[in-house]
């Protein structure tokens, strides 16, 4: 049985949803566990830095688990081994999507700096920076799906 959506597009969607889910769950846990108990922590940049560093291995671990689940589900549904190969079209799409996502990240970065220019709290800059990273990831995913569907 061949699913209607190509594997690469399913994989892009699954990866993006996982990234977003991890960020939301992690953010919610941080908020509930630390910020609610001690609201002063939002002004502590050391706290933000530590929590962001901790998020990186959590995200890498989540993506590895997702890839394993994805390969198992793919095998059950299509009875095919997961293709890990990337060819010239994949690389071209990757480059084009990366170029677009870089622009969105740059704009968000300017917003983060701008928040300081207009006198907002430092935590606003940190929040905008995190959002900018994920906005870039989402834009990249959308661009990839667009190029896979429309052609490149």
């Amino acid at each position: 049985m061949e699913p209607k959506m190509p594997r690469k597009e399913r994989q892009i969607i699954a990866t993006t949803i996982t990234l977003l889910a991890v960020v939301f769950i992690y953010g919610y846990i941080i908020y509930k566990k630390y910020i609610l108990e001690n609201p002063e922590l939002v002004y502590n940049l050391e706290f933000w830095g530590r929590k962001f560093f901790l998020m990186i291995p959590i995200m890498i671990g989540s993506l590895i688990i997702l890839m394993i689940i994805f390969a198992i589900v793919n095998k059950i549904l299509t009875n095919q081994d997961m293709e890990t190969m990337t060819d010239e079209m994949d690389k071209l799409i990757e480059l084009k999507a990366l170029k677009i996502s870089r622009w969105s990240t740059n704009i968000c970065f300017l917003l983060a700096i701008g928040s300081q220019a207009i006198g907002k709290e430092p935590w606003v800059m940190m929040a905008v920076l995190v959002i900018s990273c994920f906005a870039g990831a989402i834009v990249e995913a959308i661009a990839k799906i667009y190029y896979y569907k429309k052609g490149v």
Binding site: P6, R7, K8, E83, M85, D87, E88, M89, D90, Y148, K150, G151, V152
Partner: peptide, 13 residues
Amino acid sequence: VTRQTIVAIENGK
């Protein structure tokens, strides 16, 4: 290459 690339070439994409 992948099958997806062959499909894209055949369809002129």
